[in-house]
Simulated assay, not measured.
Amino acid sequence: MNVEIWSDIACPWCYVGKRRFEAAMESFEHRDEVTVTWRSFELDPAAPAEVEGERAARLAEKYGVSVDEARAMEQSMTDTAARDGLDFHFDRARSGNTFDAHRLVHLAATHGRQDAMKERLFAAYLTEGELISDHDTLRRLAADVGLPADEVAGVLASDRFADEVRGDERTGSSLGIRGVPFFVIDRAMGASGAQPPEVLADFLQQGWDARPPLAVVADGATCGPDGC
């Protein structure tokens, strides 16, 4: 069974959703038969390398609330994340464009390190206050998960994996994905948002149960429990 997860590194609910999905997978009896692929989604594709000003002030302007109310929203999000074992520090967060970070997630997939790269980027942005548009920072974070330095440098010095990121975004749009995280099973079932682990576990089970039966295209002599 294939599960694709559309998310953005700059999305705190996406990190919470990752933890909840991991908890759901732990309880799913067929977890060893599930392939998980992270897909790119940019909340703000036009974002500059670094967004200036206090994050809470920008949040207040976006939602039409006071700065104090925005800070309370951030605290509520921090408290929610803590219940899922995550340590958010919005006071440290440095917002910026995530396009190059998404390209590194695609590079990591070619080395079987996609989940590790995604995890490292989430922690860097939401816990450690790293600027994840900065190439020096991205090189260091990629090294942390064991990606070859020469390949990382080559990606960041070129447009490699740009088409893959844009392809993910086009596919997400064609599937009607407007917010993240968004979970898709076998391009047949979708679940929106950082749902509780038990809801995601039920989603996984529904996806498993909905798999089409094996199609037999040729029939020949076989051996079974009753003999050959």
Rank of each mutant, 00 (worst) to 15 (best):
I185K: 05
I185H: 05
I185T: 10
I185V: 12
I185M: 09
D186F: 06
D186E: 11
D186P: 02
R187A: 15
R187P: 09
R187N: 14
A188T: 14
A188C: 12
M189C: 04
M189W: 04
M189R: 09
M189Y: 09
M189V: 06
G190N: 13
G190E: 12
G190I: 14
G190L: 15
G190W: 15
G190S: 11
G190H: 14
G190F: 14
A191S: 13
A191K: 08
A191P: 07
S192F: 03
S192Q: 00
S192Y: 04
S192G: 02
S192P: 04
G193D: 10
G193V: 08
G193W: 07
G193H: 06
A194Q: 03
A194N: 05
A194R: 02
Q195W: 01
Q195A: 03
P196C: 09
P196R: 07
P197Y: 04
P197M: 09
V199W: 01
V199D: 02
V199Y: 01
V199A: 09
L200E: 03
L200D: 01
L200P: 00
A201P: 06
A201V: 10
A201I: 06
A201C: 12
D202W: 03
D202V: 08
D202C: 03
F203K: 02
F203D: 04
L204G: 00
Q205D: 07
Q205E: 10
Q205Y: 00
Q206W: 10
Q206E: 13
Q206H: 13
G207A: 12
G207H: 04
G207W: 02
G207D: 12
W208Y: 02
W208I: 01
W208E: 05
W208C: 02
W208V: 00
W208R: 02
D209Q: 03
D209W: 02
D209C: 02
D209V: 02
D209M: 01
A210P: 02
R211P: 03
R211N: 05
R211W: 08
R211H: 08
P212W: 15
P212D: 10
P212F: 14
P213I: 05
P213E: 15
P213H: 13
P213Y: 08
P213C: 11
P213S: 15
P213Q: 13
L214W: 06
L214E: 15
L214I: 11
L214K: 15
A215Y: 10
A215S: 14
V216I: 15
V216R: 07
V216L: 14
A218D: 07
A218H: 06
D219K: 00
G220T: 00
G220I: 01
A221K: 10
A221I: 14
T222P: 13
T222Y: 11
T222N: 11
T222F: 14
T222D: 09
C223K: 12
C223M: 13
C223S: 12
G224Y: 10
G224S: 11
P225H: 06
P225W: 05
